[in-house]
Amino acid sequence: MKLSVIVPAYNEEKTIWKVLDKLKSVELISGFQKEIVIVNDCSSDNTEGVAQRFIAENPQLEISYFRHEVNQGKGAALHTGFRRATGDYIIVQDADLEYDPQEFNILLKPVVDGYADVVYGSRFMGGRPHRILFFWHTIGNKFLTFLSNMFTNLNLTDMETCYKLFRSDLLKNLSLHEKRFGFEPEVTAKISKIPKIRIYEVGVSYYGRTYEEGKKINWKDGFRALYCIVRYGLGS
């Protein structure tokens, strides 16, 4: 079995080497192999140079690199990565060090045990480290999750989490459209409609960034998420 790790990157020259190095060191349970798929969303810094140097210095890794010639957004980068992934399961790893790849095995365990098709890594459950940052972001995340749950009839605690582990065939059969941060509510709404889908949630750590440290999501993305929850929750 193989896990495809999709790494969308936009202006992450300061952190992408560290993220890739962390991914390199991850040993997956139950004999899972891993591939890394980097998608550079037309960064204006040296993200490409750092990523290419890492690839050149680690020829033993199964790692591929793709670049958008025009900046399209995180969702668009994920679409590219999903198409290129060859693994049995797919997970997203942002290039910003907010999530710890060593916790992949926490998400894989319900899969390995035969219980899950999809596993969400929640920042709001369990006893793992969680950086204390923005009150209104937390309220916004919980509100968006609550509203999403109303439409999907799920009981997630963290719909907006980066860590979502999907069975590849299920994910690739979805028709996904959102090119920015609307990906999260869209994929949640569409995955919830698959008959007999088995969705689990586990607690993960969260090492959040400030805007000075490079955080990119903003209040406009929150309004887009609201729109996406209603649009895709109603089935369009």
Results as ranks from 00 to 15, higher is better:
E103M: 14
D113W: 03
S192G: 06
S25L: 07
D221M: 04
F104Y: 15
M150Q: 09
E27G: 12
W219L: 12
K190M: 06
D45N: 13
G233D: 03
D117V: 06
L108A: 03
G49L: 14
Y65K: 04
S236M: 10
E27N: 15
Q102C: 13
F183S: 00
R84C: 12
V204K: 11
L154P: 03
K216H: 14
I16K: 01
L176T: 11
N11G: 05
E12L: 02
S43G: 03
F183V: 01
K74E: 01
G126Q: 05
V39G: 00
C162K: 01
E212F: 01
I63R: 00
V7D: 00
K18G: 09
L97Q: 02
G87Y: 11
I194S: 13
N155G: 06
R224H: 14
K14H: 09
L171T: 12
P185G: 10
H130F: 15
E186R: 01
L234I: 03
I229W: 01
S236D: 06
V202P: 07
L61C: 04
V204D: 04
L165Y: 01
R231T: 03
P59F: 12
H177C: 12
K193H: 10
S30W: 07
D41N: 14
R83I: 02
A9C: 07
R83N: 14
G31A: 09
Y207N: 15
E69M: 10
D88H: 10
Q102P: 08
E160N: 14
N105I: 09
I199Y: 13
L97V: 00
G203S: 09
C42W: 05
T145W: 02
A85V: 13
R84N: 11
G140K: 07
L165M: 06
H130W: 11
A51N: 00
N155V: 07
I29W: 13
N173P: 02
E98A: 09
V202L: 11
V230Q: 06
L165C: 08
S30C: 10
L108G: 02
Q33H: 07
E35L: 11
E213T: 13
R224E: 05
K179M: 09
G31H: 14
P129M: 10
I217F: 05
A189F: 08
I16Q: 02
L165D: 06
Y207I: 03
E27W: 09
L226Y: 13
T15H: 03
G222F: 04
N11D: 12
I6F: 00
E35S: 07
G121R: 07
G203A: 08
F66A: 04
F223P: 13
V112E: 14
D169Q: 15
I191N: 04
T86V: 13
T157G: 01
N105W: 11
Q52Y: 03
K24D: 08
P8N: 01
I106R: 06
V37T: 05
F181I: 03
R67Y: 12
V92L: 05
M125D: 10
F151K: 13
E184K: 04
Y227S: 08
Y211N: 08
A116V: 11
A77L: 07
S122M: 01
F146S: 15
E57P: 02
S30H: 09
G87F: 10
T210V: 10
F183G: 02
A56S: 15
D169I: 12
E186Y: 07
I199C: 07
D21P: 00
K24E: 15
I55M: 15
A56Y: 14
N71A: 14
S25Y: 08
R167Q: 14
T152Q: 09
G126M: 05
V70T: 15
A116R: 04
D21N: 12
N155A: 13
I63S: 04
